[in-house]
Amino acid sequence: MLEPDNEKRDRKDLAATLRHMRRAAGLSGERLAARAAMSQSKISRIESGRTIPSVADVERIMLALEVPADAQRDILEAARAANVDYVSARSAARLGIWRRQAEIKALCQSSRTVRHFLPIIPSGLLQTADYARSVLTPAIESDPARDVERAVSSRMDAHEVLDDETRSFHFLLSEQAVRLKQAPASVMVEQLRHMAEVSERPNVDLAILPNSASITSPPLNIFVVYDERLVTVEMFSGTVALRDYRDISHHLNIFNYFRERAASNAEAREILASVAGEFEREPE
């Protein structure tokens, strides 16, 4: 997996390679920009390493430079590597996990459509404070320490993005994600009822993949797709950000596959109510 220093080196090498290829072709930045249908300022930012070019950008530059197909392969692989970010859970905790919540809020504010695939746990945008406090509190011996209360406060602050009805939010959960007891029963009841309330918002689509659904592909990871420009994938060890349009397209296909098999609207709320009832009947 990529580490921050390697990511910076990969991006610097890609920028230098593209700059060298342009010069070898005898083209100015302005001429290349015209051929690639890009602005000269964007070409300059890419070649200086100030902007990470998308894989599509690099493909257009390769075409404009008339680079042979066999010579494109390594450069495109470098572009794909440059479009992957990895932040370990330990690094995030060291910097302050509350910062990650602020980043998520900013990503939502810069997007029109946000799709959450949630096979294990509800999104932070759906969580009550008590539920968030429970899941953010370290439970495994090797879990990094964190300022739980500040993280909870930041997560609750992010909820205001849901108030902007010009943005649409799609939450796709597995039934397991709402059944898994990640907090005391009373907190689980409150959490499930809160999710049902959020699902009534006009800009929210909340769907649940029932345990009875017939699927042939396993729901492996939590991921979020921001418009069609970025995917973040969560793992135990950290978070990966993908910007390659092929990765984004693949994750949209995954989302659509499970969404077609999920219950939504009144049916989803019935599942939430049923699971909440089961938690209510648990002995204290």
Rank of each mutant, 00 (worst) to 15 (best):
N83T: 00
Q72M: 14
I121R: 12
R115E: 07
E47W: 03
I120R: 03
A129V: 04
L65R: 11
I97F: 15
V87C: 01
S111H: 08
L107R: 13
E66C: 14
I97Y: 14
S44F: 11
A93H: 08
L125D: 09
P119N: 10
R50S: 02
I46Y: 11
Y131V: 03
S88P: 09
N83I: 03
E47Q: 12
R99D: 03
I61K: 02
Q109A: 14
T51E: 13
L125K: 10
R50M: 07
S88M: 09
A56N: 10
R133D: 11
R45K: 15
G49T: 00
R50Y: 06
L107E: 09
L76F: 00
R112G: 15
T128I: 04
S54E: 04
A129D: 14
L63V: 13
H116N: 14
Q109H: 01
D130S: 14
R94I: 09
R100M: 13
Y86M: 04
A89T: 13
I43T: 03
I121H: 01
S88W: 07
A89K: 11
A102P: 02
A79M: 07
E103G: 09
S88G: 13
A81N: 11
L118T: 04
L65I: 10
R100V: 14
T128C: 05
C108Q: 01
L107V: 02
S88Y: 10
K105Y: 01
P68N: 05
Q127Y: 12
T128S: 07
I46H: 01
R80T: 11
A64P: 10
V67S: 11
V135H: 01
D130I: 05
E103N: 15
Y131R: 06
W98Q: 11
S44R: 07
I121A: 13
S110D: 12
R112T: 12
I120M: 08
A81S: 07
L126A: 10
E47K: 04
V114T: 14
D130T: 06
S88H: 03
R133E: 15
Y86L: 08
A82Y: 01
R45G: 01
I120D: 14
K105T: 07
E66L: 06
S123F: 09
A78K: 11
P119W: 12
I104Q: 14
H116W: 15
E47T: 05
L125R: 07
D85L: 12
A79T: 00
L118C: 11
F117W: 11
A82K: 00
R100K: 13
V67T: 15
D130V: 00
R50T: 04
A132N: 03
V55T: 08
I52T: 13
P68M: 06
A89E: 06
R50F: 02
L125Q: 05
I52H: 02
V67Q: 10
A102Y: 00
R99V: 03
L125G: 08
A71G: 05
S91A: 12
S48F: 00
L76M: 06
A92F: 03
R133K: 13
G96A: 02
I52Y: 00
R73E: 13
S48W: 00
S111P: 10
L118Y: 05
A71E: 15
Q101M: 08
D85Y: 07
S134T: 05
A132Y: 13
E77L: 09
I61Q: 05
Q101I: 04
N83W: 03
S91V: 07
L125N: 05
Y86N: 05
I43Y: 02
A78D: 07
R45D: 06
T51A: 09
E47Y: 05
